[in-house]
Design a protein around this nucleic acid. Structure first.
Lengths: 339, 339
DNA sequence: CTGAAAGCGCTTACAG
DNA sequence: CTGAAAGCGCTTACAG
């Protein structure tokens, strides 16, 4: 059996209550007693039982991390480890542990979150994505548990603490960068349209076109739903248009790599024949040929702030919801050319 | 306050013990009572408190994941999310949760592991790396907590449950593949030499050379310690040798990308002037130009088995240590050419 | 400055 | 088939 507070108490000739106070470094305990108890703890190899401690303290010193695991997408993308690194760093600084959701479907995730919250497994939750009509976000909003979101909530964003990039502006500036290079026929390959980030980037794309009096061409705007897994065919069709685009903005570097591959198969060269720009600045993007121009979104910072936001809420429930915008920057490399 | 077992008991007109038994689906409870209790649970929105339940059950239904976080390396590498996906899938299947270590230094990690184990925070641990003289592994071996390792332990491997690739053979076959293409001057860019996987791959490299009567050239074998962060310079020196290599094996795809970049700066083309092969088959490697030949090590499977192994140990402490070898395969793409 | 007692929310022999 | 009681390992008013 593991050594408990009672064993220490007996050995040190004090009461369990005193041992408990020594652990908490209660100032009302004499330093002699503290020292004695600490020696015994050392000697017996005592370690506090978290379950017991958390049960009475009504907290867990743990943050729940909820991610989209469906289709293994979140895991494939380097976004996840990097945001986790940010969260981990901040959580560790406040002695918080990390508990990961493992569910694959939306239902499983939802159930897990309810269990985490109701079962008092975690003191707060970080939601790593924001999608439209998400029951998980809905539940979090109601249940009262502190939480933060990476990404702007679709509904009532001002009522929740979240961290995000200015995705609309990012996309806008990205498109304007291409316009500045002389492009007028710019396509956009977006992500799943139930994610807010996808909507925002599409919105920025449209805004940029609008402001520069470039008509929005339906066929230039592609997204995951439209492609239905047939990315190759979608790109083929895009390039087979009467007026094919001279530049493509993709919502993620990984997608950019794929698109570049499809284009090559069509004997279309980047950047000679077409310019490509990505998003998220993966670690390998600079090693590509041509090196991929992209938008760095400071993923690590997103994680850091997400953790900071929940931790704030946990420390003081009454703190009003807070929104943090993390800066992004366009990184020019070799995948776009001036027309 | 959250609703407890007592509230349910009162409302249902039974004792708390009965409610507890209904939760556990104890067969000795009449189905009428069960139904009634379940209705009340539903009605009141009851959820069991994990802390309390775990305290008495002396288990946590949680697996601890311990990773190397130093220098942010583990996080950058796609290995981590993929192995986590495997673990997550298996753990979820057995209703186990995942608890992540957050420490950055070896000392912090060690302390965390001791806390996880002694504090009964987790029922078992998966160690995501194997290095020489690792105090964490040492501790795990002694403390009696079920654990498994991704990677062969350096000391007494037969006494611990681990999953690994046959790294020696992988490297050997990789080198032999290059020999088969007519290469005789083959360099090896390895990882940190305190990781067992690095040693193994180096060993396989030497074995292949030996068996084909190719002398081992000291200057051809580079590793992380030797380079000391000056990878570019190391590659320059390598190529400036009197007899420069005609092929380079790198211990990870990410390293291969970098090396390719440095080579290009030296006006050395891949695969025309030199062949390159990587390890671990990152998702983007196929999109590179040239597409990177590499060794796929079934990372997802590694995670799956690692979880399986701890879970086995947790279910039955007496089960003997088990070793699983996960298959790997060389993927020929465009980065190597026949001499 | 320290201890006895109650209690956190649950489970599980022990009775009946 | 069900309940009363003890207990998991800790913390924290309440006394003194």
């Amino acid at each position: 059996m593991a050594v408990t507070i009672k064993d220490v108490a007996k050995q040190a000739g004090v009461s369990p209550a005193t041992v408990s106070r020594v652990i908490a470094d209660n100032p009302r305990i004499s330093s002699k007693t503290k020292q004695k108890v600490r020696e015994v703890m050392e000697e017996l190899g005592y370690f506090p039982n978290f379950q017991a401690r958390n049960l009475v303290a009504k907290k867990s010193q743990t943050l729940g991390i909820v991610m989209e695991n469906s289709a293994t997408l979140a895991f494939q993308n380097p976004f996840f480890p990097e945001v986790l690194r940010g969260i981990s760093t901040r959580a560790h600084g406040s002695q918080y542990g990390l508990y990961l959701s493992t569910g694959a479907t939306q239902e499983e995730i939802h159930r897990e979150v309810v269990e985490m919250a109701q079962g008092k497994r975690v003191d707060g939750i970080i939601l790593l994505y924001s999608k439209i009509g998400d029951p998980v976000m809905e539940y979090l909003g109601q249940c009262g548990l502190p939480f933060s979101v990476v990404g702007r909530p679709y509904k009532d964003p001002e009522t929740v603490s979240y961290v995000d990039n200015d995705n609309i502006n990012n996309a806008k500036e990205t498109v304007e960068y291409l316009i500045g290079l002389g492009h007028r026929h710019i396509a956009f390959v977006g992500g799943a349209t139930d994610f807010v980030v996808s909507l925002d980037r599409m919105e920025g794309y449209r805004q940029a076109l609008d402001q520069h009096d470039i008509p929005f061409v339906e066929a230039y705007a592609v997204n995951q739903e439209l492609m239905q897994g047939k990315e190759r065919e979608a790109i083929r069709q895009l390039m087979a248009l009467d007026v094919p685009p001279t530049a493509i903005v993709t919502h993620d570097d990984m997608v950019a790599y794929e698109v570049i591959g499809y284009l090559e198969d069509l004997q279309i060269r980047v950047p000679e024949d077409i310019s490509i720009i990505g998003f998220n600045n993966h670690a390998i993007s600079k090693h590509l040929k041509p090196p991929l121009s992209t938008v760095d979104i400071s993923i690590y910072e997103l994680g850091l702030h997400a953790a900071e936001l929940v931790l704030e809420k946990i420390t003081d429930e009454s703190v009003p919801p807070k929104q943090v915008v993390v800066s992004s920057r366009l990184i020019e490399r070799g995948s776009c050319r001036r027309l």
